[in-house]
Simulated assay, not measured.
Amino acid sequence: MARPLRADIDLDALRHNYRLARDLAPGSQAVAVLKADAYGHGLVACARALEGQAPAFAVACIEEAEALREGGIAAPVVLLEGIFEAAELERVEALGLWMAVHSEWQLDALMAYRPARPIPVWLKVDSGMHRLGFAPERVETAWRRLVDAPDHACDLHLMSHFATADALDDGYFRRQATLLAELAERLGAPTCLANSPATLARPESHGAWNRPGVMLYGSDPLEHANDASRCLEPVMTLRSAIIAVRELAEGEPVGYGGRWTTPRPSRIGVVACGYGDGYDRHAVDGTPVLVEGRRTAIAGKVSMDMLTVDLTDIPEADIGSEVVLWGRAGNGEVLSVDEVARHCDTISYTLLTGVLPRVPRRYHGG
């Protein structure tokens, strides 16, 4: 019998979340962001599930774009970080990719290259995130260079990234949005600005294109949920089973270092899942799990291949009982990956992308 741990991927939920992103911005097109192996869900499988709905996909690098093309995906693919060396432009052209240009050296490389057909370019502005992008005072010069080189670049858009679109305090977001709106108006440029939180909560930032990412996978990126984010459906369910049960007296330590001690006579279940599978070792005692669709909690430190949970109040739980680490249980009960992430002092992105290759993905609704 195979180890019971698996990641169930609900492709119907993925499509539901994409339609939500699209419907929230009917005047925009939504590029589906598939970087980091579709946030751990499977790059090609998720792209195939969204074919016919998403007019374009976005990835971080050319290797991810090549995997999509090798998987039969013909739709436009945007390189969100552009090229990493000038030699990649040949592959950009051959694969028919769109690319971000965020640095002078990338712009110079594109101007020195002679494509058979112009390459669609999204010019990235550093509007306040201070990672990638042209400083605002350099944008107009870069834009004019692209406009004046129609044999090199086409379908020009301004692109940027919001640092605080998820926060209730919108002061810094508005500073970025105002700067970008003024630039776009001055240049007559279509924009691609809205990430997942801005798609969900900042309609004023919706442009010609939006870039929904983590919301596609059912994670709520907002500091406080709104009516739209409450409609998201979990795509990944990390599911395992109880493989052993221990009956312990009060005062017995459980796991490495004895961090958790039984406060009463207790039943402890051992679950086939650990940090060797990508479950976060920093999960504290009390991190929620679902056993037989009922909420209980981790009791003791996460090990490499196992973790332990308190079954004392779930007397029906036994060897073979379903355990959901996050996602949707068989009875329909949902444990949000965002809630689990908070108990691990991290974010859903790290949990979803951290599920390791030894955990088989099983796709449903395809």
Rank of each mutant, 00 (worst) to 15 (best):
T346E: 07
A135S: 13
G300H: 03
E316G: 15
S205E: 11
M1I: 11
D10G: 11
A65Q: 08
L5S: 03
Y275W: 08
L356C: 00
A135L: 13
C231S: 14
I243H: 12
G52H: 06
I119A: 09
R117E: 10
I268T: 11
G258Y: 03
L20C: 07
A109V: 04
G207I: 11
D8R: 14
L50H: 14
E339A: 15
T141N: 13
G330L: 13
I62Y: 04
A32T: 12
V289I: 01
A60D: 01
R264Q: 05
A49F: 04
P190M: 06
A167K: 14
R361H: 11
S28Y: 12
S336L: 11
V44N: 15
L248N: 10
E182W: 10
R259S: 09
L352W: 05
R138P: 14
G300D: 07
A32S: 10
A272N: 10
T287V: 05
W260R: 11
P150Q: 02
Y39M: 11
E93L: 15
A194L: 14
V337N: 02
G40T: 02
P55Q: 00
G320C: 12
V92W: 10
D10E: 10
G27Y: 06
A56R: 11
L5A: 03
P115K: 03
M236Q: 13
R211M: 15
A198I: 08
D170M: 09
P4F: 05
S103P: 01
D345P: 00
A208I: 00
L238A: 04
E51L: 15
W326S: 07
E104I: 03
Y39W: 08
D345A: 12
C231P: 06
Q176P: 01
M129A: 12
R230G: 04
M129G: 08
A283T: 05
A2F: 08
G71S: 09
R145V: 06
V125S: 10
G213I: 04
G71F: 04
L222E: 01
L50M: 15
M111I: 02
G332K: 12
L193N: 13
G128A: 00
H102R: 08
A297P: 03
E90K: 15
R211W: 12
E85Y: 04
P357Y: 00
L80C: 14
V31D: 08
D313C: 09
T287K: 02
A153R: 07
V33E: 07
L307P: 03
L68N: 14
G274M: 00
A241V: 13
V235N: 05
R362A: 07
A272C: 03
A21Y: 04
A149V: 12
A7T: 01
G327T: 01
E252Q: 11
L311V: 14
E66K: 10
L193D: 11
H41C: 06
R358S: 01
L168E: 07
A56G: 09
S336V: 05
L238M: 00
V31H: 09
D313K: 11
D305G: 10
R358F: 00
V44E: 14
S205Y: 08
A317L: 06
H282S: 14
H224Y: 12
P55E: 01
A201C: 15
T308G: 09
Y363R: 01
A94V: 07
A272R: 05
D310R: 02
L107F: 00
A244Q: 13
R174M: 15
N210F: 06
L50D: 14
A38K: 09
V77R: 07
